[in-house]
Write a protein that binds this DNA or RNA. Sequence first.
DNA 1: CTAATAGTGTCTATTAGACAGTATGTT
DNA 2: AACATACTGTCTAATAGACACTATTAG
Lengths: 278, 278
Amino acid sequence: MSKTPFSEEEFLKKYNKYDYDLLSVTTDIIIFSISHLNSDNYRKLGEKKCSVLLVKRNTYPYINKWCLPGGFIHINEDLETATKRILLDETNLKNIYLEQLYTFSSIDRDPRMRVLSSAYMTLINKDMIKEKLSDNTSWFNITIKETTKNSSETLLTFYLENDKENIEFSVMKILKEKTSNIYDYKVVKNENIAFDHAIVIATGLDRIKNKIEYTDILFNIMPKYFTLGQLQQVYEAILNKPLLSPDFRRTIKNKVEKTNKVQKGSGHRPSVLYKYKG
Amino acid sequence: MSKTPFSEEEFLKKYNKYDYDLLSVTTDIIIFSISHLNSDNYRKLGEKKCSVLLVKRNTYPYINKWCLPGGFIHINEDLETATKRILLDETNLKNIYLEQLYTFSSIDRDPRMRVLSSAYMTLINKDMIKEKLSDNTSWFNITIKETTKNSSETLLTFYLENDKENIEFSVMKILKEKTSNIYDYKVVKNENIAFDHAIVIATGLDRIKNKIEYTDILFNIMPKYFTLGQLQQVYEAILNKPLLSPDFRRTIKNKVEKTNKVQKGSGHRPSVLYKYKG
DNA sequence: CTAATAGTGTCTATTAGACAGTATGTT
DNA sequence: AACATACTGTCTAATAGACACTATTAG
């Protein structure tokens, strides 16, 4: 039992927090959703694309580059509270699925000063956003090309596009340690994404890909009623690969509930609308 | 394109980081290993227990309570560098598996001031530590009792013990959101664990349980050569449930390599020593 | 009729759980 | 001989992948 010359109360009074290094902490949030591209053929289903909400910076550093929504956390709020505040600011949405992704801490990730950033991610149905996005905010559709370099390295090339702009960046995904399934991400090419947000986006997409295998998070992206074909398209957009429809229907069956509604008018057999069986 | 009255260089020069709230950031590290309990019967295998390294605090706050090894991160190191420094201090080990667990950020988690903490975890073979542990540091064997309260709540009661001390604490594990498999942990009973480290330990153990299903991290806890019986005991200790030996052998088979060594002298059929097939 | 998606059924290969039964050391 | 673990083999149920085939609409 250690002896101390004064009480806990006295100790805390004398305690000077400036004896330690202090850091700024931000939270960045990856807001994922799905875009429905229109088809040229009236019968064909429009393609679906995973999309992400980005903000164009109007101050230094990285002026005019795109970054994730985010901001400094205040001294009287925890990370999740801060993230919800930012999410409400950007999308006017609340009470939605939010997950801590990773805390990024490279010492040079912000040229202004040492900033540590905890990234969160969320999946939303962007049609729920009634308000017009502010001018500097935009959804980008994501296309990813994966190139396997060797057993522990994969090159991920991201193509982000909206009506006005095309952005391309690449990230090398490197297996960090053979026993752990943990990866390092290194930016290989990037001109338009601010800070280390290219890595944050890559990390987030990987997390989602993993999580949709064993959770129901993709239902957060869906409207209340949907066809199994639409649901499959969303899974395919996120997983970045086609699925076989009979097999998809079989495995998803116990997560959804048939309704008595039907979607018609599409030049082919109408499909039953389902809803998520919470 | 926004206009700005001065250059980026000028901007950074004028930038005053004290315009923003600053926080202290610590890293806490859960160092897991396995203890081999001796058997009363010369033939029986000694039981194995998951164990964790704790440090007894000798200053306020939480004086004389146990906590995870950890410390403040310096302005010139990232989280992983800081964690490795602390791990080297405590165990003299380097180049080992290390994984970021979660960043804990409740505003009242430290009575001194606002402290944000990123927790890391690692699995080691504690026989590799040659040096004597310092007096205030000790391994505790963990026994967990799980009680299901309802579909979204499970009470976890932790019994930690070493030669001198028994610690008990309980944590309620609450499903946070039905689509996501994310849990909240709330301390129900705790007298001897400092800060929010009871929650950190509970979170870490859950992460490991999940990860050993699809990674090889448990091999970090094993010595170079081991029998399949020993390996199974380690899996059982972490998963907190018995496994069927024929099934365990079948599923683990492609991860290990038979050697020509054999372990004898145990009152029963000798067992072949295996090693991890990296 | 046609193009396109909706939806059903089935064959096969793989995997997980349960467990019966044999092998072989030490005391 | 007895005990305790080491190790093998097998039956079954559940699951995943591939794919053939039928149903139904708008134009």
